[in-house]
Design a protein around this nucleic acid. Structure first.
Ligand SMILES: [Mn+2]
Ligand SMILES: [Mn+2]
Ligand SMILES: [Zn+2]
Ligand SMILES: [Zn+2]
Lengths: 136, 136
DNA sequence: ATCTTCTTTAGAATAATTATAAACAACGAA
DNA sequence: TTCGTTGTTTATAATTATTCTAAAGAAGAT
């Protein structure tokens, strides 16, 4: 996904009005070759850098959560003072480089299938995620 | 581990002075049959309930982090507004019941061995943890 | 154009965690 | 035991990520 027209489509399809701010956020999030792992603060700063236009922090929060709810972003469970998000919304796992505080995608074939041999009555599995912490 | 004398030993062995507060915290954390998953706030309230003595919130934080550093507690990576800890410090995985906000241990045999088929130059694996989210 | 609804924004509020610094308690040597 | 040292506890303040609020602005429909 790479053009402004496509972002407008995407927003419309989710009943989100295609505002200047949201389109800028889309550019930063989705107009790239590689998957993108970020915190709200990363994103906030990148918007200024890449688009030259400032978007308020509140709007960055609002938009990230709107995209998260629509399934355009994934939240990555790690213990950090900030929440990490991911533009790769497929089921996949992560390395977390503790020193650099950077997430790296693991392909499913890098981990292999995981069969959970236990179940809890009345509950079903929503997701299975592996986090591999890296140190030097 | 169940007796006060043992807690004093444990603390001494880690160059932590065995204070009344720390011993009370040990009682709540380690004097139990099952593994214990908790947040700082859970623990803070349980201390009052179980020992009848109040320990300041700052001390609860300090002590939990001291125990964490010494390897007596494990931090569980989940996205929550509060940090979760675990008295089971062996390598193991978790269910997280999203609705109840409760962690449940998974035995390693419930998950099976996980072989990570990818490596990052200069980095080594520190831990591999699986988080299985549960919904109704 | 006008009206309605949604969005953005600055700033305030909230809440978990960490820092501060003074009072206090454990320790070890004398 | 007493005393000096060092480690600990505590109330409280500071910090910080996130959420809330409410007013001003923009988008969409008619
Ligand atoms: Mn990823
Ligand atoms: Mn556990
Ligand atoms: Zn979200
Ligand atoms: Zn810790």
């Amino acid at each position: 996904m790479t053009s402004k027209r496509e972002f407008i489509e995407k927003l419309r399809n989710s009943s989100l009005r295609p505002t200047k701010q949201r389109i800028n956020i889309c550019e930063v999030l989705f107009n790239r070759d590689e998957t993108f792992h970020f915190t709200i603060n990363d994103l906030f700063n990148l918007i200024k850098d890449k688009t030259g236009e400032k978007v308020s922090l509140a709007t960055v929060y609002n938009t990230v959560h709107a995209f998260h709810k629509k399934g355009y972003l994934k939240e990555i469970p790690i213990n950090s003072n900030q929440t990490y998000f991911d533009t790769n919304v497929t089921d996949h796992h992560h390395f977390f480089d503790v020193k650099e505080e950077k997430l790296i995608d693991l392909k499913n074939e890098d981990v292999g299938p995981i069969e959970i041999q236990k179940s809890i009555p009345g509950k079903k599995i929503k997701s299975v995620e592996v986090l591999v912490k890296l140190e030097d």
